[in-house]
Amino acid sequence: MDEALTLLSFGGQGWGDEIARGLLITVSLALASLPFGLLLGFLVALAKNSQEPSLKLSANIYTTIFRGLPELLTLFLVYYGVQTAIREGLKLLGNDTYVEVNSFVAGMVALSLVFSSYASEAFLSAFRGIPLGQYEGGFALGLTRKKTMAFIIFPQLIRLALPALGNLWLILLKETALVSVIGLDDLLRMSGVAAGNTKEPFLFFGIACLLYLILAMISSAGLTRIEHWSKRGELLK
């Protein structure tokens, strides 16, 4: 037991600080992907919800692709695809150099793409939960379409989509583990490095799992509070 604690301590002998840094990278990767994923997901949901068939079709193609591909493959497609594209582009300019894409950015892009395609479904079903009368009421008050969307529909939309989005956040948090495969020093990779150096894989991967669990618990607690806050108008019954 003492041995395990030494291994996990912060400082020269232990791996605590490395793992803590990995944890920080995991959380920041998830937090960095979230806004892009939400924004893109909302735009895709708007497209799916529009009357225009061509817009609907293109949004549906987008979600079919990114919901059907394994997340790991999406990550590789982004990571090596961007690398290949840049290299080919430079070759055309007569410059043959090896380019490496930052794994954090590649992970962020891939996770945002996947998150947005799932989030669009969440937003879409929230759109369907808002009665038409809400739009009509907005127009009757003389609001423009944009203002109706911003002040009447959007606040209700958030409330309706929040439970599904919360689940997606928990999934996103878990998916960040995949980025360790392309060399980002996240929680899982740092525990892997520690496990390799100390020959104590069960301890370190166990710790990694535990930390992911703790992140999930903190998130669920936070999400419950946010949901509570979003429903504060409904509580007076």
């Binding site: 878990k174 960040t176 583990a177 899982l188 894989p201 991967f205 990694a208 799992c209 992911y212 669990l213």
Partner: peptide, 18 residues
């Protein structure tokens, strides 16, 4: 609550400890 990748590592590498 934990990533499948971490579970896989826990089983594949971790059980080697025992």
């Amino acid at each position: 609550g934990t990533p499948l990748l971490a579970q896989t590592f826990l089983i594949y590498y971790g059980f080697g400890s025992f």
